[in-house]
Design a protein around this nucleic acid. Sequence first.
DNA 1: TTGAAAGCGCTAACAA
DNA 2: TTGTTAGCGCTTTCAA
Lengths: 349, 349
Amino acid sequence: MEGKANIQDVAKRANVSIATVSRVINNQGGVRKQTEERILKAIKDLGYIRNAAARTMKSKDTKTIGVIVPDINNPFFPSVMAGIEQKAREKGYFAILSSTNESPVVEQEILKNFIERGVDGVIITTANENGDHLKQVHEQGIPIIAVDRSIQYYDVDTVLVDNVKGSYQAVQHMILQGHEKIAIICGPQNTTPGRERFIGYKKALEDYNLKLDERYIFQGDFGERSGYQGAHQLYSLEERPTAIFSSNNLMTIGCVKAMGDLDWKLGEEISFFGFDDVDIATFLNPKLSVVSRPMHALGELAFQLLHERIQFKDPVPKREYKLSPELIIRESCRLRYPNNSPDGQSLKK
Amino acid sequence: MEGKANIQDVAKRANVSIATVSRVINNQGGVRKQTEERILKAIKDLGYIRNAAARTMKSKDTKTIGVIVPDINNPFFPSVMAGIEQKAREKGYFAILSSTNESPVVEQEILKNFIERGVDGVIITTANENGDHLKQVHEQGIPIIAVDRSIQYYDVDTVLVDNVKGSYQAVQHMILQGHEKIAIICGPQNTTPGRERFIGYKKALEDYNLKLDERYIFQGDFGERSGYQGAHQLYSLEERPTAIFSSNNLMTIGCVKAMGDLDWKLGEEISFFGFDDVDIATFLNPKLSVVSRPMHALGELAFQLLHERIQFKDPVPKREYKLSPELIIRESCRLRYPNNSPDGQSLKK
DNA sequence: TTGAAAGCGCTAACAA
DNA sequence: TTGTTAGCGCTTTCAA
């Protein structure tokens, strides 16, 4: 049947009022079995599909949540999104996904669009942690969950990975392997993960009485290219580091690429630890040691929190979750002084 | 200001009628400058954001397109999506993205949801090429563009990669390198790429008078695991192939992993060519030769076609585009008989 | 240049 | 168990 039938058409064809049709559509009961069947048949015959816009105008909620990520090409985000989507579908919600390309302007637009569409909630990894632009969302009474990056200027439920812990442990591992000249390729310091991973790095050095050396700190932007540049810069140092910690997946890839180009022997001349597991990790020789994040779980938890907020509008205080990352020790971080100091004992605090 | 202002509130505050406010919101002109400014101020003061649902009810179009992919974790799709999104944003459209996990049932649901929401068009890589489930969309007069996988039972604009050509050239390359026992790890034969890449493989063998050998054909499902299994199976053969062609990125990864585990020396004992470029390609030694697809362009073109369909509703006949893949010859396919037949001359047709 | 008013398709309160 | 009806917030004639 030609589409575009509306509730009127169905009512007419089934010889009932639109109210009755509405009852059937929404499974509200209170309709005689016989009538219901007639209506169901009419719906099928007409190929009727209810108009969400009209429905939303009355009932307010849309059963839709908006999801915003900064970079859809970073495999981390599709994984998180998959987690969100799965849980959302289970609860009868529908997720609409958007990527900002790290542009706060685009993020603004998307957010506005989300409000226009009346999403019931928003899950966001923001391109602008300042958070001013989220105020409008908040004012509309739309709950927000921050994932992976927190929001500064007001309280939002937040789901993070314990970045400090992850990078601390990674750097600690390097130290215990005897490394002292440990470089870091940082992420942007205006992002939670960028900042926190740097903090973990500094803390580990401090705890083991290694002093921070500016030369070994490279400011990257979480992009592959900056990882590549970072490795180059560190290689050009007169006194090269013996180990490098990379703050995320893409920079790890760039970094390892550079090492190949520079013929900087991974595992021999330069040890390595990366935040985020990557496809290439197990294909390299030596295999990359990494800090791995529970991406799917991150997404699931985010939706769960959002769902609670949507259902119980009461102003529960802000909640913050930190999921633990997992250290995956493979082969790229080798003992620094195989003869002198087999396990770095002398360095223990 | 507390949100949820509507056009009424704005009108009241600006001392005009809602019609005038509407004119300003939609930039229709015909409003005195002074009045417009008053209205703009009211909008700002009230934090007014127009209600898309109400708007849609009148004006029909939503400036929204729906995008469906089968597997958001396959990096191919995020790239395509990025292409779509970019073009869409340029034209003032908003893309809502969904992943089906290769489930036709989920795809159905999503499609229905898209119709309910009144999307202006759909771009889809279907999990069910049969296409019956798309009829309802078609009947609503919503244009559809198929990407990467075609639709069988009725005419839809389609954007594909020239799979036959790509795999033909890859296999041809292997043949010219002197290989005769060339295995293929196939994709599902009920998908366009799966079928077509197999066809290219067969055609190349035929053209060079090599006969098809059942033992060298492994049926995979485009997932990493099946690539892994494929390599294992081929390795277990009494008479092993000397070269393998893998039909997509994920299976390539699985395949190479297996080779590592089996200590099947890539490039020496076994040559390799894969469809789709992958991150790991240039990190392996030897580097992987691959057929690369123009993913971003695929997405851009898809949106462009869709946009045309949305604007000019006239029934233009179905169009089908095939973008050419690119052969990236790196190192994983080596000469088979370095002494006897240096460049495969004797095999030329 | 502005305003009044008729719906768009639906839900839900109230009536029967 | 079913029907009548009043909006939801907006766009868009038509009139002024």
